[in-house]
Amino acid sequence: MINPYENKNEDEWFDITCNLIKNHPLDMDIMVDTVLETWEDIFNSSFGKNDIKIGVDIFPTPQIMGFLLHELIPINLKAKLSSDDWVKDKEVSEKDLVYRPNLDYSVEIKTSSDKKRIFGNRSYAQKSDNPKKSKTGYFLAVNFEKFNESTNPKIRKISFGWLNHEDWRGQKAQTGQQANLPAIIYETKLLEVYPNNTIK
């Protein structure tokens, strides 16, 4: 993938990201609707013969809620578009949301119960000559409330943009297993599209 920010100043990053998003084959309104509908689907579904419901009978951890979003968003998007262009990943080397006509537009999905930030594992901040999956490209970030913060948790924020491998910072401690993003990245490369659309 060609780095669209290469040799560009930081004050140019925001406009570059806006253009990348506008030219992306996935319409942002459709993407936002899909994420919000998927969140509602999770609470409207029931399990087993006793009709066990999330938010009524069980209150999953953020990791489980994130997993459900991660798995269901690609499936629901494919159904919403009635198209095989967008599909869920099948191989470890694929992004989470695969765009078959042009893999460069495929999207990695990150979810977090943090109010504003997303995180990756330590490998996101480590250079590898043979990574299982590219850490560069389009990202969809979904931030949501936890059950202990609300009895009826909501989606806090949905963001979209392009991240390079070098954008991620690993924890300084040798035992740290997390990678995060500096503030400038949220301001210029991973832009909020819900509830506030910050794209020009």
Rank of each mutant, 00 (worst) to 15 (best):
P4Q: 05
Y5S: 04
N7P: 01
K8G: 00
N9T: 11
E10W: 08
E12R: 00
W13L: 02
T17C: 06
C18Y: 08
C18F: 05
N19W: 11
L20I: 10
L20A: 08
K22Q: 14
H24T: 08
L26K: 07
L26E: 00
D27E: 12
M28F: 10
I30N: 10
M31S: 00
D33K: 15
T34F: 04
V35C: 10
E37N: 15
T38N: 05
F43S: 11
S45P: 04
S45D: 14
F47L: 14
G48V: 13
G48A: 12
G48F: 13
K49C: 09
G55V: 06
D57L: 05
D57E: 11
D57S: 01
D57C: 03
P60Q: 09
P60N: 05
Q63S: 14
M65D: 03
M65I: 14
M65V: 09
G66C: 09
G66I: 03
F67I: 02
F67Q: 13
L68R: 12
E71K: 13
E71N: 13
E71S: 13
I75M: 14
I75F: 11
N76T: 04
L77A: 10
L77S: 10
K78D: 13
K80L: 11
L81P: 06
S82D: 15
W86Y: 11
W86K: 03
K88N: 13
D89E: 15
K90D: 08
E91Q: 12
S93V: 11
S93P: 00
E94D: 09
E94G: 06
E94S: 08
K95V: 00
D96T: 08
L97Q: 04
V98H: 01
R100E: 13
D104Q: 11
S106C: 04
V107S: 08
V107W: 09
E108I: 03
S112T: 08
S112Q: 05
D114E: 12
K116T: 13
R117F: 10
F119R: 12
G120V: 07
R122A: 10
S123H: 10
S123D: 12
S123Q: 12
S123E: 15
Y124M: 01
Y124S: 00
A125D: 03
A125V: 02
K127H: 15
K127G: 08
K127W: 12
N130L: 09
N130D: 11
P131M: 10
K132M: 12
K132Q: 14
K133Q: 12
K133Y: 06
G137I: 09
F139E: 02
L140P: 06
A141F: 07
V142C: 06
V142P: 03
F144A: 01
E145S: 01
E145I: 02
K146I: 00
K146Q: 14
N148E: 12
E149S: 09
S150K: 09
T151Y: 13
P153M: 07
R156A: 07
I158C: 04
G161K: 00
G161I: 02
W162M: 09
W162S: 01
L163H: 01
N164Q: 13
N164M: 15
D167Q: 03
W168N: 05
G170R: 14
G170L: 07
K172N: 07
A173D: 15
T175E: 13
T175Q: 09
G176S: 11
Q178F: 04
A179L: 02
A183C: 07
I185M: 02
E187P: 05
Y194S: 10
P195I: 11
N196M: 06
I199C: 01
I199S: 05
